[in-house]
Design a protein around this nucleic acid. Structure first.
Lengths: 116, 116
DNA sequence: GCTGACATGCAACCAAAGGTTGCGAAAGGG
DNA sequence: CCCTTTCGCAACCTTTGGTTGCATGTCAGC
């Protein structure tokens, strides 16, 4: 019953820095490691490594253009990632709801027994 | 516009092992580091460390009982975590939808221009 | 065509996190 | 009372996120 999670995809979006990178790419459009690193408290190389991870997970793709490597978000894959987040969240939510129902049932049966 | 993410909470649920632990606690009820480690490819100490992280994030609470430390899930905090997952997912989803709308608008305007 | 400037990649190095083993201490059951 | 079980702590290893330094490759102007 646990949600079907692609671990590489999840670990890619599990890092807060990488989520920020995705946010930036979505907000301002395609960018390079250098352009993304300006404005972040990170060196270009660190950003580059994160982009490599995101690339391996298929969340972004690099498009070489002259001396630049322009990264853009893979919308389909990101949609998959969003679905996974929702999936795990929904699983937990469902379980909590079920536990609550059971707890309430126990509470009710105890009240019934007390009356005897 | 980016989703309001509590980084400690997120990093706690970002680890696949910790998600598994939460799943196990939800599925079989409260358990100890030892009971959880049996059936997982992990030593008791590794599980213990993860439980400590989850405890610091407020996702689980330890209830000492004799020589055991029984951990149970904090339902309210887990609900918060689930909400965060949904929130980030929804943010990305919304942005992707917006991008798609813009792309379609550009496509339409180009078709209009082509006709002239 | 050469030279300077800028974006990149690669390698070495460092700190934090996940994992292991080994040991000593406290609580329960015969 | 002793033996078992559960636990916490410390030392150690490996991976990962981050840095600096350097070599490479492309563009722009002279």
């Amino acid at each position: 019953m646990s949600a079907p999670v692609d671990d590489e995809l999840w670990s890619a979006i599990g890092d807060p820095t990488r989520r920020t990178l995705i946010d930036l790419l979505l907000a301002y459009g395609p960018g390079t490691a250098t352009s993304l690193s300006t404005g972040l408290p990170l060196t270009r190389q660190a950003v580059s490594k994160h982009l490599a991870v995101l690339d391996r997970a298929g969340l972004v793709h690099a498009e070489p253009s002259g001396r630049e490597r322009r990264y853009h978000v893979d919308e389909a894959q990101l949609a998959r990632a969003a679905a996974q987040l929702a999936s795990v969240g929904a699983t937990w939510d469902a379980r909590l709801r079920r536990i609550k129902r059971i707890a309430e049932a126990i509470e009710r049966s105890r009240n019934n027994t007390e009356g005897e």
